[in-house]
Design a protein around this nucleic acid. Structure first.
Lengths: 131, 131
DNA sequence: AGCAACATGAGAATGATTGTCAACTCGGCA
DNA sequence: TGCCGAGTTGACAATCATTCTCATGTTGCT
């Protein structure tokens, strides 16, 4: 197992603020957007801290992180089970989806070619009913 | 259909060089790496041109483009059918894989939630047998 | 209280990618 | 063959997200 684990995060004012911000929206947002949100709320949190916090949270799977088509990292709070996303290209609306069959398939493919330590990324993009 | 199409590319010396470079390796490489490769070969092609060419080629699906975990775009020549990749985290070795079942599944999921214009990304990472 | 490890913020630094724009090339066509 | 407009190119500046630095706060514990 590749050691992804670290010490538990200290519940500092800043980290709490970031977590609360994450709880206030449902779509994927960039670190900068979250930083702006905090600013507007009056929470003084440095941009670097927002980046660091989101990074740690995504490493521990407390938030989902994915990359937009132009490579920007965006974050969103998430449930604790492994899942994927159906994301609206227009408004960012997101639906978490699970697919045991897909998980099985990726593992089978990897096994078939002798790959170990397998992980995968799967995101579905489209335009939601409202668009 | 979102107009992804453009005029056919003119077969300039530079574009030919990039295409040839792409034919010379099997793994995913960044625009900068490809530029270096061209340099070493003595082909004088500007970095911006390499970026522009790769972009056009990937838009027309003549090359695959995916993002590494840190968001960098990497390219690789590809077959003309829709497919995904099994990529070695260590050496970049890549296996193209197809999964009709997955395609069906993503479409079904999108349909179920009323999403239109669906596309998806799916990449599998692991360490290949040689590592 | 007192210490060591962990966190933070401001700003500089990095690095990939894109924009700018004058010079150049290509593919017709008169 | 010579000319023209659209498409291309290259050198370099400009963006922009993200990371690094490091001096200064905080936290958890004893």
């Amino acid at each position: 197992m590749t050691s992804t684990d670290r010490q538990p995060l200290r519940p500092t004012r800043q980290r709490i603020a970031v977590t609360e911000a994450l709880a206030s929206f449902d779509d994927f947002r960039s670190a900068q957007e979250i930083h702006d949100l905090l600013d507007r709320r009056g929470a003084k949190v440095g941009l670097a801290t927002v980046y660091r916090t989101l990074q740690r949270l995504s490493e521990s799977h407390e938030v989902d992180m994915l990359r937009t088509e132009d490579g920007e990292a965006v974050y969103r709070r998430c449930s604790d089970t492994h899942h994927h996303h159906l994301v609206c290209r227009e408004c960012g609306a997101t639906v978490e989806i699970e697919g045991p069959a897909v998980e099985r398939w990726t593992n089978a493919m990897a096994a078939e070619h002798g790959f170990a330590d397998v992980s995968h990324t799967l995101e579905i993009f489209g335009t939601c009913p409202r668009h």
